[in-house]
Design a protein around this nucleic acid. Sequence first.
DNA 1: CTGTTAGCGCCTTCAT
DNA 2: ATGAAGGCGCTAACAG
Lengths: 348, 348
Amino acid sequence: MPRAVTLKDIARETGVHVSTVSRALDPRARDSLTVEVVKKVNETAQRLGYRPNRLAAGLRTKRTRTVGLIIPDITNPLFPPIVRGVESILEPLGYVSIIVNTDGRQDRERSQMQVLLEHGVDGVVHAAMERDASHYTDLQDRNVPIVTVNRRLDVDGLPSVVNDDAEGIHEMFRLLYEAGHRRIAHIAGPPTISTGVERLAAFREAAKAFGVSVPDAYIVESEKFLFEEGHRCAAKLMALADPPTAILAANDGLALGAIQLLRDRGLGCPEDVSVTGFNNSDVLSLVPPGLTTVGVDKTGIGKASATLLISRIDNPEDPETPHLVQPIEVVIRGSIAPPPRAGRQDPL
Amino acid sequence: MPRAVTLKDIARETGVHVSTVSRALDPRARDSLTVEVVKKVNETAQRLGYRPNRLAAGLRTKRTRTVGLIIPDITNPLFPPIVRGVESILEPLGYVSIIVNTDGRQDRERSQMQVLLEHGVDGVVHAAMERDASHYTDLQDRNVPIVTVNRRLDVDGLPSVVNDDAEGIHEMFRLLYEAGHRRIAHIAGPPTISTGVERLAAFREAAKAFGVSVPDAYIVESEKFLFEEGHRCAAKLMALADPPTAILAANDGLALGAIQLLRDRGLGCPEDVSVTGFNNSDVLSLVPPGLTTVGVDKTGIGKASATLLISRIDNPEDPETPHLVQPIEVVIRGSIAPPPRAGRQDPL
DNA sequence: CTGTTAGCGCCTTCAT
DNA sequence: ATGAAGGCGCTAACAG
């Protein structure tokens, strides 16, 4: 069990002092040294297989090259690409990420932040879905930079990166409108989730923008962003005396559930009812009829948030708190068609 | 920017020495102290919001309560549940995980291990897919315990946790056999991937066990575990003079690609050709006809590997290197039917 | 039962 | 241009 090589070992080997070794290995301090010394030190470091002890360095410098990544649940397909995006920026810079899952629970969020603090993270990327403004006080007290990704906070002062949800909803609405639909319903996300309320608000905006009136009954709130909920909510919609000819769902899962409900009722998508989703989940191309949806750049928001975080870490005094909005992409598949004739005969 | 509270602060506040504070906070050393002192120290620690500095402690004790998690790509749906499983065990024990992605590249695996070492991880869980036995020498030299998960290594000496691939393939074969199939083909995984060769070997075993002879042309090797490859390989199979009546694919993606090929050719699954997969990916229930497949307990292997790792960390002298095999589950959906009449008329 | 001492590995003045 | 010395926060002998 050969002990790890330390500066001291290199010092002994080369005959110079430890602090000289430290300087020779530090690109920023290197030039105050003889080229020969630098060369010899680096060579022996190489030869002995020296690896800096980040703990010791961190203890001294208060910089650990570690960042915390707080996410609700890595199992939710939304987050792995974000994580990958973050790492694609951080890793080349020599940072490692400590990932913690919170399941969206405030108590866990709090305690996990403490854990990150204990490990001396240089910064934190917080990916979340809940709407509540979490208590970042501990981090801010300790002056640890934090960036939120994937949701805009109610209360603010922190940099954030989000997708352009409003634009995505607007474009889905436009597609339905231009196909001829006027009876357009919305299966909304849970009111506790940030994207749930954002997309609902955007839906209302879009309806107004296109001059389409939406009866209250055309807006159904789901309890979770899941297939089953889409199914349940679509059932409520299709049970109306005046059912919609199109359903704009707040995400893909809800949309797929809605399509299933239609099928159960003997209705076809898109012939009888058009449906749209949000997120462009990987599997969509496989499941008929192919959901028209909003593609979001998950890796992109991850990258952007990491870039933002690094700039905060490197310039702690910079007072800016940018709010980045990542553009979305319209993904057209087969789930939209003009409304059926019966639909057209109804008075607008 | 209030500096973090340290032992020294508590010492000053309570009037006892730093080392006494340290002891009072350590459950194992606590009982050599007066209850009053312990009480007072803990109260003030609480009041001041003391959080131990893990870096400093780690520098002293060589234990950081940090483990490394090496995976090819968190974006591959196979890994998030494993990660979650690992964390479900580690987090309650006070460990955090540093996750690094390697894209399965040896050079990155090597360099990332160095990075983990620099950060003083107490152990490493290595999830991998490639067959090559990686060089764990650096870790082993430093006496850092390591557990591999999701693949068995060619060369060994390390504890590992894998799924019971052989059993899964055997069961799929049985299902097909019992439905009446005798012309059963295999779309194999890439030969560079551990599960690829394992499942191919298991397929040959199963065929032998059931007394079914498999022509060479009935085994097609894919280059990646992907839909497109399943499509391509199935095309080769169905172009044979004597095409199979059943396709046992090495994973779900390949199976779905095969089903798509059948559809392209105007053939139905399961009426014309039966198909089976492996992994029980989340989406399968949504895509017709519902793939019959092998369910693997990803969270379970994650948990098992973490448990194994902890026991290695706690008992470094223990010479055992267990190889755990996690049981699989047969998931029956609609993709198997008896072979069509035409198939039966062929000579066996 | 508690204080003293030393040092983990590194960086950073301060001297020379 | 390099060495000496101190200390980051914590723990672990060793004293007493």
